[in-house]
């Protein structure tokens, strides 16, 4: 009963556990997929987890610096997505595939 109350009383660890789960899922996605776009989905999940952690620590640690960090994380995630998807399009145009197992030659 006591542990149940501890689980239901939402605090910092709850957000950290959610962020850790997101991070692990993103890692799994990025490691196991062969489709380049699916790998980028995994990277987005990892970045979201990082942002969530920053905001959670900012909320329970005082100050707003964590939120500032998350602003930068979101902007850089957008930049990464733009460049990554441009690369995916370029690879697809040249090689007719975005299967990362088959994109294995340099200077192709």
């Amino acid at each position: 009963m006591d542990s149940l109350v501890r689980i239901l009383d939402v605090g910092l660890p709850h957000y950290l556990v959610v962020a850790a789960t997101l991070f692990a899922l993103g890692l799994f996605c990025a490691l196991s997929r062969r489709n380049a776009v699916a790998i980028m989905i995994g990277i987005e999940l990892v970045l979201n987890a990082a942002g969530l952690n920053f905001v959670a620590f900012s909320r329970y640690g005082g100050g707003h610096d964590g939120q500032l960090f998350t602003v930068f994380i979101i902007v850089l995630a957008a930049a990464e997505a733009v460049v990554g998807l441009a690369l995916v399009l370029a690879i697809h145009r040249r090689l007719r595939t975005i299967d990362v197992d088959r994109v294995n030659e340099l200077k192709g």
Partner: peptide
């Protein structure tokens, strides 16, 4: 990949709690 992700989740989950 599943093993790595599960290991990471276990580590960070324990740390968080």
């Amino acid at each position: 990949a599943a093993a790595v992700a599960a290991g990471v989740l276990a580590f960070f989950g324990t740390l968080a709690v």
